[in-house]
Design a protein around this nucleic acid. Structure first.
Lengths: 340, 340
DNA sequence: ATGAAAGCGCTAACAA
DNA sequence: TTGTTAGCGCTTTCAT
């Protein structure tokens, strides 16, 4: 059963295809009688317009693409959800592709989406060469989220990893801590590296200095972070506080502290999570809100597409860097005073 | 700057557009010399094929659609992730649309995707009339996930909400519990209603009987569930165990029990969550694995599209109902014996 | 091995 | 108000 086309509807209603097109698209210059007849034919045949053909003709697709590490990651799930909600208001569909942290797959996904004629792209870039993107610059406005790329000229929406981490570490220092461990690092993530630098600079500037024995590496995942924090506390009994560099690691740190019954150890988590306020004590967290990032990024994209409030922004003007504010949510774990 | 087409490449390479098409599609009947020349032109012009035009001509799109409550919900995020991974292997892109539990929006999303010529659909149906789907039956294979619809003839992949709940409640009974509260209900969700029935039947069959004072209603969200469990324990001091009917509610129940310092109260959660094993005691949970649901559903869809292992399955044969197994993960909270 | 022509379903431009 | 024509970028069919 072939799907009906404008032609079929036109034959059924005994009008020209253009008239059907007018009715379907809600144009007003059609007489009520004809409109009615066409509508009946449309309903009878269950006609559904073919947006592929429409897009081909008009030269503009009706989708935007979202390329992320993994949609299963709650952070990116929320981000994507915000993108979808914002895009929907502008009448755009969302296609999704995950990279699995693989730069080659990122490129494949982007290429596929460009072939699919996406109007624009929201991309959480994997580290690597993004030169391939430049050929699309003029045609497919692209906004990077969460992380930036090594080349100029792309709008980017990030949080201030460095500054927010300094804020978190300062918070611990303000509560008397001097031996602050860093857990949850991973060289693969530029964002986490920024947090590491923030941690180091903050301690240096506070005149405390960094002790490498307190810095754990390559333990960004939950299980690794749990092991790491247990080892850290074992090897360094003088540690009084832990800064966890990412959400997944924080879950492990929480568990580790709990298992070791170290309610005396303070903790600040970079990244908020669902049960953070449910735990006892609540986990003090730096909230980097994926919804805000998604909304801001999509708003930028829509502006570039001329679908925002203002006029379309030409590609030549791209390259803006938006820093979405973070906030430190005090819940108890970060306000534990150092034991005297 | 117009994007280059086959025409442009053909002109550049001084061949016909068909030859370019052959090279781009990797057909073999092209001489090495010409192939080389075309390839150079493709690279020089940064030619990217237009899959919209291709799909229009071929009559088949290259995407499947996923329609869910919300991508921000971890359950559906994982499910969608599994769908994407499976679809990608078959060379299909994924478009995503959320319903926000609104039946009207479900229909809008489905309609949009059909217009976009999706090859197939994975749908978590919102309760309501799905008659509108039948017109697409022949053209767009559709698999329902997590919930079924009121009409026959659609493949459905669900978990055994009823049976799994019975299993969970039996587990509590086996540990001596008789006063088992039910928290986290919500009439809007058929799945949760099934769980409620399972709870009731299980208690009846065990000769315990249902006491309505132990059944809380309309508290499916975290904050509501927390209030509900606190009220429940206050009003009914004889309660020794709680069955939480959904994951979000479980977070509230955990918090509530914690706040009330009721480590003597047993708990089983329908739905696993990230910190379930991190808490003390670990939360015994019925795991309904979204990844399994997503994979099975997509495999079914691909089979219907003729992209699976076997031959394409005609729409007339649709209507299969797959029940993905669940398991009860014992972590401690469900094994608390009743206080004597 | 290569090419010319037709047409997928639609809309823009232009008649009538 | 309604209809005709051309053509979006591609693949298919049928030459050469």
């Amino acid at each position: 059963m072939r799907r009906p086309t404008l032609h079929d509807v036109a034959a059924e209603a005994k009008v020209s295809i253009k008239t059907v097109s007018r009715v379907v698209n809600g144009e007003d210059n059609v007489s009520a009688g004809v409109r009615e007849r066409v509508q009946v034919a449309v309903d009878k045949l269950h006609y559904v317009p073919n947006t592929l053909a429409r897009s081909l003709k008009v030269g503009l697709g009706d989708t935007i693409g979202v390329v992320m590490d993994s949609i299963a990651d709650p952070f990116f799930a929320s981000l994507t959800s915000a993108v979808e909600a914002t895009a929907l208001e502008a009448g755009l569909n969302v296609v999704f592709g995950s990279t699995g942290f693989d730069h080659g797959r990122e490129r494949e996904q982007v290429d596929r989406m460009v072939m699919q004629q996406v109007r624009g792209l929201v991309l959480a870039p994997v580290r690597g060469d993004h030169g391939y993107l430049t050929r699309y610059r003029e045609r497919v406005p692209t906004v990077c989220v969460d992380r930036s790329i090594e080349i100029e000229g792309y709008d980017t929406v990030v949080v201030d990893d460095y500054g927010a981490t300094r804020h978190g570490v300062e918070h611990l220092i303000a509560h008397g801590h001097r031996r602050i461990a860093f857990v949850g690092g991973n060289d693969r993530y530029d964002t986490i590296n920024q947090r590491m630098v923030g941690y180091r600079d903050c301690l240096e500037d506070a005149g405390i200095g960094v002790e490498e024995r307190l810095v754990s590496h390559d333990d960004a995942e939950t299980a690794q972070a749990e092991d790491a924090v247990l080892r850290m506390l074992e090897d360094n009994p003088d540690v009084t506080a832990v800064f966890s560099a990412n959400t997944r690691a924080s879950l492990g740190v929480v568990h580790g502290l709990h298992r070791a019954r170290r309610t005396d150890v303070a903790m600040v988590s970079f990244g908020d999570f669902l049960l953070a306020e449910t735990l006892e004590p609540g986990v003090t967290a730096i909230d980097h809100d994926p919804v805000a990032i998604g909304e801001v990024a999509t708003a930028h994209l829509l502006a570039r597409l001329g679908l925002g409030d203002g006029p379309p922004v030409p590609p030549s003007q791209a390259g803006e860097r938006v820093v979405v504010p973070t906030r430190l949510i005090e819940r108890g774990s970060g306000e534990i005073e150092v034991a005297r």
